[in-house]
């Protein structure tokens, strides 16, 4: 039982990270209809900036705050400069542009910061409590709190502010939104900026739980985040969070209890997705798109 709870917690810890990257993917998808392949690499770049700042002597919390701000600005610039010109092009074209960004950002990151392993300090101290024989680390609590805070802020932003209303309006019908005076371009820029900032936070809290920060740090996370978003339904933020947690927990439990899956734990999320999509092709929380024929 102790082992089970421990694995469950590991799973939730990872799941929280998958969820926050998935949340960023869903946010961009909801507002622009674009699947951003470069999301993981954008987060990687911000994480390197966080590392650089701590290396220069800044405290980790301050470093995360600064790099999140930088990511916010960069996200807006990327939307304005790279995505805007192809906004109305076919989905293929946009896909290829984000793939180009993926390649470019990852190689620029390696060029600037080098490809040796870096150690990023954790934002949380190493405290741990023992609750019914299970050790609960502050890091775990911190990860969960960060995700919860992200969700709450995002929800408040989308549901309770004028900006959020604009974002939702553009997502649901860009033309009508423009007719009532909402600048859809500005809204899309905001969407990308917020997503980039979420990625920065996700990367900065995730990397310290791994052995080291390397150029490949975010690639596996991107795959799991994509799995999480698909599982939850690509247009549902709630789905992204639930999907992320399910993927993380399923992975951790499979490592522990299913011997034949050793080394191939990546099978787990995709078996799950396969099973869910066979019965609900739009994911757990996705809305069905009704087409008029």
């Amino acid at each position: 039982m102790t082992l089970f709870l421990q694995q469950l917690m590991n799973g939730i810890g990872n799941g929280v990270v998958y969820a926050s990257v998935a949340l960023a993917l869903v946010l961009i998808y909801r507002t622009t209809g674009i699947l951003n392949f470069a999301q993981g690499e954008m987060a990687l770049f911000s994480t390197y900036i966080t590392w650089k700042l701590t290396d220069a002597g800044l405290g980790i919390i301050a470093a995360i705050a600064v790099s999140t701000l930088i990511a916010f600005v960069f996200g807006a610039i990327i939307e304005r400069v790279l995505i805007r010109p192809v906004e109305h092009a076919s989905p293929f074209v946009i896909l290829i542009v984000t793939i180009g960004m993926f390649l470019a950002i990852s190689s620029i990151t390696v060029t600037i910061f080098g490809d040796d392993e870096k150690q990023l300090p954790s934002a949380f101290s190493e405290r741990a409590w023992s609750v019914a024989d299970v050790s609960v680390t502050l890091e775990f609590v911190g990860l969960v709190v960060v995700l919860a805070a992200e969700c709450l802020l995002l929800w408040l932003l989308l549901q309770r502010t004028k900006l959020g209303l604009g974002l939702r309006a553009v997502a649901s019908n860009p033309e009508s939104a423009r007719l009532v005076g909402i600048s859809s371009g500005t809204m899309l820029m905001f969407g990308w900026a917020i997503a980039a900032a979420l990625g920065a936070i996700g990367g900065a809290v995730y990397v310290p739980t791994t052995p080291a920060l390397t150029a490949g740090s975010m690639q596996a996370v991107l795959v799991y985040a994509l799995a999480a978003a698909t599982l939850g339904g690509f247009d549902s933020p709630l789905g992204a969070v639930v999907g992320g947690l399910i993927v993380g927990v399923a992975e951790a439990l499979a490592i522990q209890y299913v011997e034949p899956l050793h080394d191939i734990t990546l099978v787990v999320p995709f078996i799950l997705i396969g099973a869910v999509l066979l019965f609900k092709p739009t994911g757990l929380f996705g809305r069905r798109i009704v087409e008029r024929v």
Binding site: I99, G100, M101, S107, I108, T111
Partner: peptide, 16 residues
Amino acid sequence: ELAPAVFGVLLVVLMY
């Protein structure tokens, strides 16, 4: 290590 960056930019430009 910059080669993928050049190639990535090439892709983006081609698509524009």
